[in-house]
Amino acid sequence: MSWIEADSGAAVTLSVNGTRHDLKLDARVTLLDALREHLQLTGTKKGCDHGQCGACTVLVDGRRINSCLSLAVMHQADEITTIEGLGTAHKLHPLQAAFVAKDGFQCGYCTSGQICSAIGMLGEWRKGWPSHLGDHAGAASAIDAAEIRERMSGNLCRCAAYPRIVEAIEHYAIHEGADT
């Protein structure tokens, strides 16, 4: 184990959506900038760049995180999933389809983050993780709108499409989320 010297550029290997990428990056490059600027995976969006808006949410080993508040060099042992790894324009992920069907956006800038966050959030729900609203040991029941709002509070929508975002997630969780 040795130091990567400042300004020297580090050999960084990232596994994104099932593909390994060998990069040379400054240690300062965030996971978000590595995805967007070095791998051209621009589906993940930069909003505030300070962990406040959730637009940059990706899944790391299945867990949702803010990719703007993490360095790429810290994720060489992880499997990263971005919106590009969930679905494509020709084969939408069922949650993407639910956002289209329920009109869960206006400008769409926060949508990738909303969808990645919701996938991670529903995994947490199925594991029975509690929320500020209470304990959900087991969480055999379907998630409701109040829980979705609380658990998705780290994803902001400047267009305030919240009612339809909640509907889309609820629709997916009830109708199609059971087998994911």
Partner: peptide
């Protein structure tokens, strides 16, 4: 989310869940 924390130290579980967002708490 730890079962022993929820069972024995609910004040700790509640305090953590009252803070930040799901993404931040994961990190």
């Amino acid at each position: 989310a730890h079962p022993l924390v929820r069972q024995r130290y609910p004040v700790l579980s509640q305090a953590i869940l009252a803070g930040a967002s799901g993404q931040l708490r994961n990190k």
